[in-house]
Each structure stands twice: as C-alpha cells, then as structure tokens.
C-alpha cells in the first residue's frame, strides 16, 4: 500500500477548494490553479486528492498538469525569479540575463536552489516592453536588467 502524506489542515483546505467548484470534473483546471496558489506547486499527493474529489483518474489530472506549462510539480523557491522572454525582452538580451542567473544560482530554468531560496522560470511578455529586458522576483519588477546587474538583484535577497 502506497501512502500519501499531507497535513490535515492542508488537506481540508484542498478539499474546500474542490468543493468551491462543486467537485465538478469540468473545473479541473480551475481547481489546479487554486491548488497551486495554495501549495506553490502541485505535488503528486495534491493531484491524488484532487483526482479523488473530482472523481477522475490521477493519470488524467497528471495529463493536464504536464500539458500546461503554468503548472509545476517542483516547489518554487522563497524568491521565485521569472525572466521575461517576450519578443522585446528577447531581442534586448534576456537570454544573457538568464545565463547569468543560471551561473550565479547554479540551477537550470525550472529548478529550485538546494537551500530553497531561489527558483528560476521563464515567462512570456509581462506587458512592460518599454523596460525590456524585464525580471520579476516574486511580485517585484526589475527593468532594463543587464547581465552584470544580476548579481546585485541576487544580493538583495541573500543578505
């Protein structure tokens, strides 16, 4: 028997999310969206619970989670770093900024640093093309980021 671990409190919250959508299997994407909001990511245990509550197979839930790039099964860091790869940011050197983050944090895109502090992700256009290239750390926006400015951004959060 495989056992799944989830704290009672979190389990109740997750079930409440499902219930708020009337445990309707057609609302799977909305439920996953809220659940990712609650946990920061969608671990297997969470998907198992959602499958049970919505009466769908876990394989189906995983199918949806693995299809949409927004959903992640890896926990995000305390400070999630997102680099915009929209057209404007891209042509103004966003890729070099990513490389610098990768080098300094020693992680790849989609990964979280071993200490759980930083995670690295890419996203498409945040609507601030005038500030390209744009980097977000949590909710905070950094504009016109150059590769040599990356270490200062990281330093802000490692004090």
């Amino acid at each position: 028997m495989a056992n799944i671990k989830l704290s009672a409190e979190k389990l109740d919250e997750l079930k409440a999310i499902c219930k708020s959508f009337k445990n309707d299997k057609g609302e799977l994407i909305n439920v996953l969206h809220k659940a990712q909001g609650l946990f920061g990511y969608l671990p297997a245990e969470v998907q198992e619970v959602i499958a049970k509550e919505l009466s769908v197979s876990v394989a189906h839930v995983y199918g949806v989670v693995s299809f949409y790039s927004f959903f992640t099964m890896l926990p995000k860091g305390e400070y999630p770093v997102s680099i915009c790869l929209g057209t404007a940011c891209y042509v103004r050197g966003a890729e070099k900024v990513i490389d610098e983050f990768k080098r300094i944090l020693n992680i790849n895109v989609g990964e979280t640093s071993p200490d759980g502090k930083f995670s690295l992700a890419c996203l498409r256009c945040v609507g601030a093309c005038g500030l390209a290239p744009v980097v977000l750390v949590g909710e905070k926006v950094y504009g016109r980021v150059a590769p040599d400015g990356v270490k200062d951004i990281v330093a802000e959060y490692t004090k």
Binding site: S57, V58, A59, H60, Y62, G63, S66, F67
Partner: peptide
C-alpha cells in the same frame, strides 16, 4: 474505468503513460 493510462506532456514530448509517468 481503470484510469491508468492518459496522454501526458505536450506536443512532440507527449506520450500515453500512467500518472506521474
């Protein structure tokens, strides 16, 4: 209604697999 197999991942990477592959 066993529900073991589902299409997972996207595009060129998509496969039919059990949950969490």
């Amino acid at each position: 209604t066993v529900g073991v197999l589902s299409a997972v991942n996207r595009g060129f990477m998509s496969v039919v697999a059990p949950a969490f592959e």
